[in-house]
């Protein structure tokens, strides 16, 4: 995945009094055309799936001009057509320029001048998935501590005290707030049971 911004400097004005004011730029977003085509294909695929699976919908006995499957089919057909149009538009552009980077239409890019990593974003997503899988097995305290630790390590925090203190304190603070004050029952692991014995519920 790639996405960055170009910073045209033309048109930037200097202040009248000569002070060197850095005006915010209007960056032009660029995206990877291959992924843009893949996302458009995903749009078409959702549409095709809606049409195919709407065939399994049982219609009710009441008279209904559109029926339970009517809107799913219409939306499915619309998504399919839009997906094909978006792919077609990019493919036509490909003939003009062989570069994979193209100007985006409205996408949110990165802060210019700083490196970005899609792997980090996907890593955090996987960490969230891991939290959901681990929570019922090892309990709230350990799974949440692991998720925060993964997050701060992934974000390149290297200060030892931040790496130790932030995950620990935030996990304990949210556990106290949600479990002890709000009375929410989290899945309990051995560490949770230990702390539950130490700190009684407020309500």
């Amino acid at each position: 995945m790639s996405g960055s911004r170009l910073l045209p400097d033309e048109g930037r004005e200097k202040p009248a009094d000569g002070a060197d004011v850095e005006l915010p730029s209007q960056p032009i977003e660029v995206v990877d055309r291959r992924i843009d085509v893949a996302v458009a294909a995903g749009v078409g695929a959702v549409g095709a799936a809606a049409i195919v699976f709407s065939g399994d919908i049982r219609e009710g006995t009441l008279p209904d001009p559109l029926g339970a499957a009517g809107l799913p089919r219409m939306l499915g057909a619309f998504l399919l057509v839009v997906g094909v149009l978006l792919i077609g538009r990019r493919l036509v552009g490909w003939r003009r320029s062989s570069s994979h980077l193209v100007y985006a239409d409205g996408g949110s890019g990165d802060e210019p001048g700083y490196p970005s990593s899609a792997v980090r974003a996907f890593g955090m997503w996987l960490a969230g998935l891991g939290w959901a899988l681990l929570l019922p097995r090892i309990g709230y305290l350990v799974s949440t501590w692991l998720l925060i630790l993964t997050g701060v390590v992934a974000m390149k925090v290297r200060s030892p005290w931040k790496l130790v203190a932030v995950p620990l304190l935030f996990t304990l603070a949210t556990w106290l707030l949600f479990s002890r004050v709000f009375g929410l029952r989290f899945p309990a692991g051995p560490v949770d049971l230990f702390f539950e014995g130490l700190v009684p519920r407020l309500f």
Binding site: V46, A50, T61, L62, L71, L75, F78
Partner: peptide
Amino acid sequence: AAAAFGLAVALIGPDPVSGVTRF
């Protein structure tokens, strides 16, 4: 496409008129 996607996701579950389950 984004709005149609949102509407399509909202179709999951019981049909608001007949109550038939979808998707």
